[in-house]
Simulated assay, not measured.
Amino acid sequence: MLNLGDLANPKKFIDPVHIDRADSEFLIQALCMMMLIRETEQCIAELVKSGIANCPCHLAVGQEAISVGVARHLNKQDRVFGNHRSHAQYLALGGDLEELLAEILGKVTGCSKGMGGSMHLYAGEQGFHGSVPIVAGTIPLAVGAALAAKFDQQGSVGVAFFGDGACEEGVLHESLNISSIMKLPMIFVVENNLYSSHLDIQQRQPFDSTSRFAEAHGIPYEVVEGNDVGVVEKAAAKLIQRARDNKGPGFLEAVTFRWLGHVGSNEDIDVGVRRSLEEIKAWKKRDPVQRLFLALEKNEIMSQKEFQQHLQDIKKRVSQAKENALQAPWPKLENLESYVYASTGSE
């Protein structure tokens, strides 16, 4: 596949998503998780805007459906890796909300002891083995984890989440190559938000679909509307099960759009030469949260009153987690080197 066509057109896919009533329980859970991610990201945006959070924060408002859809088919034995924009993956896999906010605030109760910030998240017990700020930096780590999974023969998989900008890094292509040759249980998930950090994909590449790179390495791929959690979930299920069955890697390209700039809380900064506020407004009609709720409401699975109750409960949960994180202690200076150097066991 070379070009995305309607998938990259903000005037398409704006109606309520199509749902299967048999998936009602998952869809309700998915909606609540997407709402939690959205509220958390908006909370972080306010912390950044007010100057309380001092680390760089890359937010994924508008992209929530991808992490939630893929996470349905992952378990704690899988080895999942994120990137610089990974709050959503951390939460979707079961990472602790308060530890996330504490980490962003630099508090010792954070998931990385307050020493890493927004781009160094870790929830190993939930299968999330870390995120780093280096573009494409965790892709080869996930491939190594997939190699370990192949030797373990326990049916687990390696997973790397990354953006379309990472597809311009050589390490991705090396990772695709070795995964294909060795038939590793590896899943590549590209959140194609069309802009990388600052520039429209059509001005960086000859085609706007990244799945052509998987095709070049003989890797099966799915290209989906990334703001429809049901579509993402079904495509992920197929690729993940194939990997668990020792049939080799898979590549999932989920087309989406982040509402905010590359870093920080503003819409109109760091957003490339073609992206405008009018374009953002158009893309917001493809809101994965609102479109899923409207579908649930249309099918009489969730009422507006129930939606508002879920939203208020989530807002309270995020607010309490924020207050707890604000009150948490800072790391002690004397522990600085202990996080960097291994103890020799001698004075």
Rank of each mutant, 00 (worst) to 15 (best):
L4Y: 00
A8C: 04
N9E: 08
P10Y: 04
K12Q: 06
F13I: 00
I14V: 01
H18T: 15
H18Y: 14
D20V: 09
E25A: 01
E25T: 06
F26C: 01
A30E: 10
M33S: 00
M34R: 11
L36M: 06
R38F: 08
T40A: 07
E41Y: 09
I44A: 03
A45R: 05
S50E: 09
G51R: 03
I52F: 15
C55I: 00
H58F: 14
V61N: 15
V70A: 06
D78R: 02
R79S: 10
S86V: 10
L91T: 08
L91D: 05
A92P: 09
L93E: 00
D96N: 15
L100T: 09
L101I: 15
G106C: 12
G106K: 08
G114M: 01
M115A: 12
E125N: 14
Q126H: 10
G127P: 01
H129N: 15
I139H: 04
G144H: 02
A145F: 03
K150T: 02
Q154A: 09
Q154R: 12
G155P: 08
S156Y: 13
V157E: 11
G158K: 07
A160T: 05
F162A: 07
G163L: 03
G163M: 07
D164Q: 00
E169S: 07
L176Y: 01
S180E: 02
L184N: 03
P185H: 03
P185Y: 02
I187S: 02
V190G: 09
N192F: 06
N192P: 10
Q202L: 14
R204P: 07
Q205A: 02
D208Y: 08
S209Q: 08
S211F: 03
F213P: 05
A214L: 01
H217C: 06
G218Q: 07
E222K: 13
V223S: 07
E225W: 05
A237N: 13
K238F: 14
R242M: 14
R242D: 12
D245K: 02
N246C: 13
K247A: 10
F251P: 11
L252H: 03
E253F: 00
A254P: 13
V255P: 09
F257N: 11
G261I: 04
H262N: 12
G264Q: 11
G264P: 15
S265T: 11
E267Q: 15
V271Y: 15
G272R: 12
G272C: 05
R275F: 09
E278R: 07
A282R: 14
W283H: 07
R286C: 04
P288I: 03
V289Q: 02
F293R: 06
E300V: 08
I301T: 04
S303K: 06
K305I: 11
E306I: 00
I314S: 07
V318H: 03
A325F: 08
L326Y: 09
L326H: 10
Q327N: 08
W330D: 13
P331A: 00
E334W: 03
E334V: 02
L336T: 10
L336I: 05
A342G: 14
